[in-house]
């Protein structure tokens, strides 16, 4: 029995993208994307700006719609007539570049909002979960402050904790450290690394190559809406296959 569940979690992908394409009007942003992500896997997606990497992960919780191919999340296909997008979204955490915390709510209220309003949890229950995750991102003392009173790094950690409160199956990170001052990047990456160690399935769009090396199971390189290369991190960085990957790596690693 336990073997069986073990096997099923290992073999069947939680996210399965096949031949997926997306257009903005007549402009093709994503071309024939094929990608499977297994439960517990950690992916880093990188590539030059405009390569479609953010669009790709925004398609996974349908903040963007795709026009061709299919996306299966946990065995459910995403398409435009799906009624349960909202339910699916509660199971996919999303962390944005610009945090998108709710400025009129306190940190604690930001965290308890979804569990209470969407899942109908009691206030005390939601608060307990919220404090647990605030401890995990190491800022329990900020619970009663408003987001604007926090530094960028703290805000992003709150945003991560907010997603975790819904106990998601997958976490999507859309350039989570790009809007941060340099000295705050590491505190956010630390929280993400901790999260990876708990076995969370993570898809991160990021340019933090140190993080990719340390945490990722696979690195995906995208350019012009296509997946150009994918490999395990060591191989990816030391032995890139395509010219474009080499160029990209030389550009971001030369400093």
């Amino acid at each position: 029995m336990s073997d069986l569940t073990q096997e099923s979690t290992n073999s069947s992908p939680i996210i399965s993208i096949s031949d997926m394409s997306k257009w903005y009007g007549t402009f093709k942003v994503l071309t024939d994307i094929n990608l499977d992500v297994k439960l517990g896997e950690r992916l880093v997606i990188c590539g030059p700006s405009g390569s479609g990497k953010s669009t790709l992960i925004r398609c996974l919780n349908r903040l963007e719609a795709h026009q061709k191919g299919s996306i299966m999340i946990d065995g459910v296909e995403l398409h435009d007539r799906m009624k349960d997008v909202d339910k699916l979204r509660t199971e996919i955490g999303m962390v944005f570049q610009s945090f998108n915390l709710f400025p009129h709510l306190t940190v604690l209220e930001n965290l308890t909002a979804a569990p209470m309003w969407v899942r109908g949890e009691s206030e005390s229950e939601a608060k307990k979960t919220a404090m647990f995750y605030l401890e995990r991102v190491k800022i329990p003392e900020q619970a009663d402050k408003y987001p604007r009173q926090l530094s960028g790094g703290q805000q992003q950690r709150v945003a991560i904790a907010r997603s975790l409160c819904m106990n998601p199956k997958v976490m999507l990170f859309d350039e989570p450290t790009s809007a941060l001052d340099p000295e705050m990047v590491s505190e956010v990456l630390e929280v993400m690394t901790d999260l990876a160690e708990t076995g969370m399935t993570m898809l991160c769009v990021t340019h933090e190559m140190g993080f990719a090396r340390k945490v990722a199971d696979r690195v995906i390189f995208m350019d012009e809406g296509k997946i150009i290369e994918e490999n395990e991190p060591n191989e990816f960085f030391t032995n890139p296959q395509s010219e474009r990957t080499k160029l990209f790596l030389s550009q971001i690693l030369q400093h």
Binding site: D86, T90, M94, F96, S98, F99, H104, A114, V118
Partner: peptide, 25 residues
């Protein structure tokens, strides 16, 4: 727009997003 996306991405429906997130701001 980020407030919309943040709210919708957490599974809030249109009405809830309006009432609890957008209108108060």
């Amino acid at each position: 727009r980020g407030q919309w996306e943040g709210s919708r991405a957490m599974g809030f429906k249109f009405g809830l997003t309006m009432r609890k997130i957008i209108l108060p701001q």
